[in-house]
């Protein structure tokens, strides 16, 4: 079981080269296959995830959640997806059509791209980049543009406010997000994901870097635009923020992308702070799934408990608290490493 996926990939490459294909081309085809597999898994996973969130939020609120379609209401998301697909696709006449239509696509493409570097098991990265962690951060920061495009393209004051909020929020929270991961990088001495996982074979970084973990958790929630930081959407104030004018599948794409981001960030958190795919008895790819889902449940619990923060509080929290704390953490980590090295570790 452990090496099932890896062996399959090797077999595919061997078969392709056996057909007389140049090794470079075979690798390219493998990459495409892996990519498609990731997209399929992500989308299937999200149907489960949306069901899970509705179920968990139901339990939190002492409700039952969806329970009509299929066992425990598991097919509810699929039914919703079919409904959204068959809905009329409305493009309001005063919108900036090009931007309005491309925004959801840009968003979903960016969020799927995040999965390239996440190790989903022992040797199961699509590409093991030497700058993997940095890749994740910088690609993740691109989703600002998608939200801004949605906000501007909708030509609606609520949407524009939502777009503006998302820019302010995401740019501010990128900084503590990157800084909090820097502590881990300093200990590992590498940006490569496989190195980070390997460095945690003895002890998880959540123990070594608790401050970094907390700052990362908070700023990741803000990056994901999830409650209590769901400024761009903010149903109660901005009606639906940047998504106000979207209908049918375009709207669904936004949600798909949001959940894709959510899973990616949770998986990264599991990789960077909770030992990645490492774990006893079970196959490695099962471990990362378990860890990711546990983290996701914490995200759910937080979203359904807290009220939304005010925009200016949100900004000052980032600039006046999170950034100094994450900088101090870097200093602390550096000093710690220096001391330990002097002691002869």
């Amino acid at each position: 079981m452990e090496h099932f996926f890896v062996n399959t990939a090797h077999a595919l490459v061997a078969w392709l080269t056996g057909l007389g294909l140049a090794p470079g081309w075979a690798d390219l085809i493998l990459l495409v296959v892996q990519w498609i597999a990731v997209i399929i898994i992500v989308i299937l996973n999200i149907t489960v995830l949306i069901w899970l969130e509705r179920k968990v939020s139901g339990f939190i609120q002492q409700r039952l959640g969806p329970n009509r379609l299929g066992p425990f209401g598991m097919f509810q998301t699929i039914a919703d997806a079919i409904k959204l697909l068959t809905k009329e696709d409305i493009v309001p006449s005063q919108t900036d059509r090009m931007i309005f239509k491309t925004a959801p696509m840009v968003f979903i493409i960016i969020s799927v791209m995040l999965y390239v570097v996440i190790p989903m098991g022992d040797g199961m990265e699509i590409v093991d980049l030497n700058v993997g962690l940095f890749y994740f951060i910088s690609i993740g920061s691109l989703s600002t543009i998608a939200l801004l495009m949605a906000g501007w393209g909708s030509n609606n004051k609520w949407s524009l406010l939502g777009g503006m909020r998302s820019v302010a929020q995401m740019i501010s929270y990128e900084i503590p997000l990157a800084f909090s991961l820097l502590g881990v990088v300093m200990i590992t001495g590498s940006l490569r994901m496989s190195d980070i996982v390997a460095a945690q074979s003895n002890i998880w970084f959540v123990v070594l870097q608790p401050i970094a973990f907390i700052t990362y958790f908070i700023s990741a929630t803000a990056e994901l635009n999830r409650g209590p930081f769901d400024m761009p959407e903010a149903e109660q104030e901005l009606t639906s923020g940047a998504y106000t004018e979207y209908t049918g599948m375009r709207w669904a794409l936004f949600f798909l992308a949001e959940y894709t981001n959510l899973v990616a960030v949770s998986a990264l958190m599991a990789t960077v702070f909770f030992g990645g795919w490492q774990g006893p008895w079970l196959p490695s790819w099962l471990w990362i799934i378990i860890k990711t889902y546990l983290i996701l449940n914490v995200f759910f619990l937080i979203k359904w408990t807290f009220p939304r923060i005010r925009m200016d509080h949100l900004m000052s929290f980032s600039w006046k608290f999170l950034i100094p704390v994450s900088l101090a953490n870097i200093l602390l980590t550096g000093a710690g490493i220096e001391v330990l090295m002097r002691m002869g570790w």
């Binding site: 139901g58 339990f59 939190i60 609120q61 002492q62 409700r63 619990l301 359904w304 408990t305 807290f306």
Partner: peptide
């Protein structure tokens, strides 16, 4: 205060549901 709130919701998560299946 935030943690206490989380405690409340977490506690209710594992309680019996009160809704009626009409």
């Amino acid at each position: 205060g935030l943690l206490k709130g989380l405690g409340i919701t977490l506690k209710h998560t594992f309680e019996r549901e009160i809704t009626q299946q009409y």
